[in-house]
Design a binder for these strands. Structure first.
Lengths: 214, 214
DNA sequence: CGACCTGTTGATTCTGCTCAATCAACGTGG
DNA sequence: CCACGTTGATTGAGCAGAATCAACAGGTCG
């Protein structure tokens, strides 16, 4: 891990909607490249720095004793992750598809904690949304919610790019990867989406998708 | 709402584990009493102050368009809630059982944002735990997780007090209230708990409960 | 080419939901 | 005091949605 090599600029960090003054206040730090599947921090690691996603996608995971995995969040370009209440990371973070990440050192040092608070509270809001999805929506609605969410985060075009594979989607939505497959097939049959590629989904009926996660 | 009358000191605010320096930095504010079911803030209200629970229990809820409800958190004495990313509350907060609440005015004014950040990050951690529960655990395990959580928050005695009713438990755990009933019956038959009263549960086999949510 | 990995699809099982009845506790009004 | 309505909790029967188990297709890489 911590391999520092050839960048692959998927998308530039979107106008830093997450970290406005934060980044400008930092001295320019090195961007580390994490190839697909690389661990950014592990469960039990001592927490400390925050991480800014320059490009690519990161998954935040938690394992239960019997091996079940829940992905609590995906983070894409422009977002910050790594908040931890205690001294150790209770979750672990992995690169989904090859990501460039800037470590923001010294939460302890003097930083604009105001903007940090804003970022944390944003994560909180996203997580509340996700709680609603996991607690009160069926498989169709969960998939629709993810597609809409990714679509918005990617600028709202007609095509949604799925950086993660079926297994990750399943563990994020709290279903199985077989069900993910079936749901996509179902959405395809209803002419709501079109599968351009295995990780590229064209939205044909945006309204229908929104209705599903209303 | 905002009825300011006879306090009922269930339990004193536990050693303010949530808000160490925060409270001491505030000038003593009035404690408002919210009777059972009273709305503390509504969905769409302009956000602003944070709220410190003096005694009692608060539920944070979110409604979907078709009326399904998800309770994203319960907050008991000593905890702080009301964080919001945008200008409006995306959730609403209600008193579960008659609560005393102190409004911490002026997030905008100069407050120790450091300790606010800590509180927000703690909420984040609890929410991640809950995401795991909703995404990857069955009804038994969810109920066990709630019992263990409440038990810890209440000091770890033998008896867990349930301030909320079955409907609330269900909407928190993402199941139905009938299922809650059945699970409790199941736990009772297994001699893991004993129902002293409808809202008072004695834990007979603490180990078993812990195993269930391992 | 074969091994492997990811994704898709089918058949079957089972958990938890829906619908519905019953019960206990409580308050109200005659 | 009792009949009545209400509300929350429990329990049962049947069903549906998603999980599980299993087979197979397509792509990649050694």
């Amino acid at each position: 891990m911590h391999i520092q090599s050839g960048f692959r600029a998927n998308r530039p960090a979107q106008e830093a909607t997450g970290a406005p003054d934060l980044l400008s206040a930092m001295q320019p730090a090195a961007v580390t490249f994490y190839p697909e599947g690389a661990v950014i921090y592990a469960q039990g690691d001592t927490a400390g720095p925050l991480y800014f996603v320059e490009f690519g996608c990161v998954r935040i995971c938690r394992l239960s004793a019997d091996g079940r995995r829940q992905i609590t969040a995906f983070h894409v370009a422009g977002e910050v992750f790594g908040f931890e209440a205690g001294a150790e990371h209770e979750s672990y973070a992995e690169s989904v598809d090859g990501t460039g990440i800037q470590a923001l050192r010294s939460t302890c040092g003097n930083q604009p904690t105001g903007s940090l608070l804003l970022l944390a509270v944003r994560s909180l809001g996203r997580m509340q949304n996700h709680l609603m999805v996991l607690g009160r929506r069926n498989a169709n609605e969960r998939m629709a919610a993810l597609l809409v969410d990714l679509n918005e985060r990617q600028g709202g075009g007609a095509v949604v790019y799925l950086p993660m594979q079926r297994n990750d989607i399943a563990d994020y939505l709290g279903i199985t990867f077989e069900t993910v497959s079936r749901i996509l097939r179902c959405l395809k049959d209803q002419r709501i989406v079109r599968l351009k590629a295995v990780n590229e989904i064209e939205i044909l009926d945006h309204e229908a998708l929104l209705d599903m996660c209303a």
